[in-house]
Design a protein around this nucleic acid. Structure first.
Lengths: 186, 186
DNA sequence: ATATAGATAGACCGTTCTGTCTATTTGGAG
DNA sequence: CTCCAAATAGACAGAACGGTCTATCTATAT
């Protein structure tokens, strides 16, 4: 992997996530990456291909952040809550724009596009991660509960973005705790 | 209100919601509305102004849909669930693109923009509507619970969009029921 | 019947954007 | 040293878009 390509992907990942795909032009990317225009088109057939590579990198980054936060957690329940810690940390950053993958799905209109599929895969990874923790916690129906907590997570993130307050994420965390307690008791 | 203006707002509301703001050009709007280019610019200073008017109309439409669904519901709890019925009906339509207001916030990058504020107001209206029902249902902390159920609603909608299945909305509904039962019992 | 305000069609302008082409330079392997 | 692949700068094309301008038409109210 050439250094020019690495710089392109990393720069594009940052710019697309922070400002949105249609708001970042090719010229911006190559200027920020300090790379020639033709270097981009030697490595990627089009802007769309660069977008896909950038969001694959973003997905890997997010998975690592989640796993790092979970590594410190002693119990399955704490590993579930770690996801909300990651989201709150993200939401407190300047230029927070919600979930990059939900935005990707919105900005690449076609539902059968590869960008949409990438977003879907990322969400399924999170749901499966949650299901693993919940199974370890002994929940009665770990998959169903994982689906519910993923909904809370997504809703908390988009709510925090649109309302510009961490309140939805706090509410999501509280609700997740309630659901987990209910699942353990029932 | 002139007929040309009405047709513009209604057409723009439909097109922007179904295809996304950046994907719908002025030419498309005026062609679909069968209105002259200058009629648009006589009523609206710019595309942004048309976008705002269109989404104000969309917000009114959504509020009406929710209130209509709630009108048939006999109990406060049923009126809360009516919101999820509305969302599921929306998600089952062809060309479903998630929540138009979350998309508006994403597509109008600036968080201090009027579009962003419009989306925020719409979400707050839904939260307040939920709080009214939950207070009537005798929940211990209706505002906090309303916040949690709004999170479930948003998360269910975006999940249904990105994963192209009603599963997240069903999970959201189930979780809302659990939280309401918990709040009544506790 | 006429005046007036609004609607119409369409040419036009400037900007922005993606993507191509060319000519030149760099750097590492044989 | 030489060669070759990759990187570079920048001009250029082609298209789409938002927005302006003009000249014509239509309908309604007096």
């Amino acid at each position: 992997m050439s250094v020019a390509r690495q710089r392109l992907v990393e720069t594009a990942r940052d710019l697309f996530a922070r400002h949105g795909i249609p708001n970042v032009g090719i010229n911006q990317v190559i200027a920020a990456a300090k790379v020639a225009r033709m270097s981009l088109y030697n490595h990627f057939a089009s802007k769309d291909e660069l977008v896909l590579a950038a969001f694959e990198a973003e997905a890997a980054r997010r998975r690592q952040a989640i796993e790092a936060a979970q590594a410190d957690a002693p119990t399955p329940r704490a590993r579930v809550l770690a996801l909300f810690d990651v989201a709150e940390a993200l939401a407190s950053e300047a230029g927070f724009r919600g979930c990059a993958f939900l935005n990707l799905a919105v900005e690449t209109a076609a539902p059968e596009s590869r960008g949409h599929a990438l977003a879907r895969r990322h969400k399924e990874w999170i749901r499966d991660n949650l299901a693993v923790q919940l199974r370890q916690a002994g929940a009665a129906a770990p998959e169903a509960l994982a689906e519910q907590i993923l909904v809370l997570w997504d809703g908390g993130i988009v709510g925090a973005y649109v309302r510009r307050t961490p309140a939805p994420l706090r509410a999501a965390r509280t609700a997740a705790l309630t659901l987990m307690s209910q699942a353990a008791a029932g």
